[in-house]
Computed example of a mutant assay.
Amino acid sequence: MIAFTQPASAAIEIDERDFGPSYDTMIVDTVVGKPLQLVTAVTGTAAYLVSLPFSLIGGNADQAQQKLFVEPWNAMGRCLGCTVAEDNFYKSQDANDNIVRIVVDQPSEILIDTNDYVVVTK
């Protein structure tokens, strides 16, 4: 019996009124977060360029590009004060004619892309 009741007790209720960035997180992200992300992105780009000959020899140029160049610049595009999960949720709300959206329990939903595959967001 304990094995069946344990997953139910692990569920977390999300208060939708408090979902998303707050005033404080937006201010901190504006003053501290975004400038540090810019420094990280520029530094990562420089490190990627310096490491490129070595990563080409090692055969992991794609991984180096992803971690040192792509991810830092993608982080700059995150909404102000948002966590990664909040940003993914807001970006998933954009209209797409090929997506069937089934809302399970806001903000959790099931997205079915009629062209490709099933994506479950939480």
Rank of each mutant, 00 (worst) to 15 (best):
P72H: 08
S9K: 11
G77D: 03
L56E: 14
K91I: 09
N74A: 15
L49I: 11
R78F: 14
P72T: 09
D94M: 06
D105R: 02
V100D: 03
L36M: 08
I14A: 04
M76Q: 13
I110P: 00
T114Y: 00
D18C: 03
Q63G: 11
D105G: 06
V39G: 15
E13S: 05
M1C: 11
P53R: 10
G33R: 05
P72Y: 02
V50E: 03
G77L: 09
V118D: 08
V39D: 02
G58S: 14
D105N: 10
I99K: 06
Q63M: 11
S9Q: 06
A64T: 08
G33C: 04
S55I: 11
E71M: 05
V32I: 05
A95M: 12
V70K: 08
C82D: 14
T30Q: 05
A64D: 04
Y48F: 15
F19V: 14
A3P: 01
P53V: 11
R101S: 09
V118Q: 13
M1Y: 15
A85I: 13
K67N: 07
A46V: 05
P35L: 06
I14C: 08
P7M: 04
N88I: 02
D18I: 07
I2W: 15
G44I: 00
V42G: 02
K34Q: 14
I57S: 03
F69W: 14
V28T: 13
F89Q: 01
T40R: 11
M76G: 03
V31R: 03
D113R: 01
P21F: 03
D15W: 10
V100C: 04
V39Q: 05
D87Q: 08
Q6N: 06
V100M: 11
A11M: 06
C79V: 02
V28Q: 02
M76Y: 15
A8R: 13
F54N: 03
I57P: 01
V70N: 01
I112G: 00
S92P: 00
C79M: 04
P21A: 07
A10S: 09
I14N: 01
P21I: 00
V119G: 12
V50S: 07
P7D: 05
I99S: 01
I2A: 09
N96E: 08
N98T: 09
R78C: 05
G20A: 01
S22L: 05
A41M: 03
P35G: 03
Y90R: 13
D18K: 08
G81D: 01
A46N: 03
C82V: 00
V31A: 06
I102P: 00
D62N: 01
C82Y: 11
S51Q: 04
A47F: 06
N96Y: 08
V119H: 12
G59C: 10
T43V: 15
N96Q: 09
D15M: 04
P72V: 14
I99C: 00
A61D: 07
A95I: 01
D116K: 15
R17F: 10
P72M: 07
Y117L: 10
